[in-house]
Amino acid sequence: KVLVLALYDYQEKSPREVTMKKGDILTLLNSTNKDWWKVEVNGRQGFVPAAYVKVL
């Protein structure tokens, strides 16, 4: 399983997205889209901007 680090806070803007806080460790589920990556955080799955996270 691939983990990513949240570099910035992100507030979800649609039901398909998830909120994350800077420093959160998320599970990367899909990174085929260069702009939006699907992650799991706190038991929820959704998209975050790829530029806001870094693969650990």
Rank of each mutant, 00 (worst) to 15 (best):
K1V: 15
K1P: 14
K1W: 08
V2S: 09
V2W: 10
V2G: 10
V2D: 08
V2L: 13
V2P: 13
V2K: 09
V2F: 10
L3E: 07
L3W: 15
L3M: 14
L3P: 03
L3S: 09
L3F: 14
L3T: 10
V4K: 01
V4P: 00
V4H: 02
V4E: 00
V4Q: 01
L5H: 05
L5P: 00
L5S: 06
A6Y: 01
L7V: 08
L7R: 05
L7G: 02
L7S: 03
Y8W: 15
Y8C: 08
Y8V: 12
Y8S: 09
D9T: 07
D9C: 04
D9H: 07
Y10W: 13
Y10R: 03
Y10P: 00
Y10N: 01
Y10A: 01
Q11F: 13
Q11N: 12
Q11V: 15
E12S: 13
E12G: 14
E12V: 06
E12N: 12
E12A: 14
K13A: 11
K13D: 07
K13Y: 05
S14A: 11
P15E: 12
P15V: 12
P15H: 15
P15S: 15
P15Y: 12
P15L: 11
R16H: 14
R16C: 13
E17C: 06
E17I: 04
E17S: 07
E17V: 06
E17Y: 06
E17H: 09
E17M: 06
V18L: 15
V18G: 02
T19L: 03
T19K: 05
T19V: 03
T19R: 07
T19W: 04
M20Y: 02
M20E: 00
M20D: 00
M20I: 14
M20A: 02
K21M: 11
K21F: 14
K21E: 06
K21V: 10
K21T: 11
K22I: 08
G23H: 06
G23Q: 02
G23A: 03
G23M: 04
D24G: 04
D24S: 08
D24C: 05
D24K: 03
I25H: 06
I25C: 05
I25Y: 06
I25D: 01
I25Q: 06
L26G: 12
T27G: 06
T27I: 12
L28F: 03
L28A: 02
L28K: 02
L28Q: 01
L29K: 05
L29H: 06
L29V: 15
N30H: 09
S31Y: 11
S31P: 10
S31C: 13
S31Q: 09
S31V: 08
T32H: 15
T32K: 13
N33V: 06
N33E: 14
N33A: 11
N33G: 14
K34W: 08
K34C: 08
K34V: 12
K34S: 14
D35P: 03
D35S: 13
D35R: 11
D35W: 15
D35Q: 13
D35T: 14
W36C: 05
W36I: 03
W36Y: 09
W36A: 02
W36P: 00
W36F: 09
W36T: 03
W37Q: 02
W37L: 06
W37A: 04
K38A: 08
K38I: 14
K38R: 14
K38S: 09
V39W: 00
V39Q: 00
V39I: 08
V39R: 00
E40G: 06
E40I: 07
V41K: 14
V41T: 12
V41F: 13
V41M: 15
V41S: 15
V41W: 10
N42W: 11
N42F: 13
N42I: 06
N42H: 12
N42P: 08
N42C: 09
G43A: 08
R44M: 09
R44Y: 07
R44E: 06
R44S: 06
Q45A: 13
Q45Y: 10
Q45V: 13
Q45K: 13
Q45N: 10
Q45G: 09
Q45E: 14
G46C: 03
G46H: 02
G46R: 02
F47T: 03
F47S: 03
F47K: 03
V48M: 01
P49T: 01
P49R: 04
P49W: 03
P49D: 01
P49C: 03
A50W: 02
A50S: 11
A51L: 12
Y52R: 05
Y52L: 11
Y52M: 10
V53W: 01
V53N: 01
V53G: 02
V53Q: 00
K54H: 14
K54D: 05
V55N: 06
V55T: 10
V55K: 08
V55W: 06
V55R: 08
L56S: 05
L56G: 03
L56V: 08
L56P: 03
L56E: 05
L56I: 11
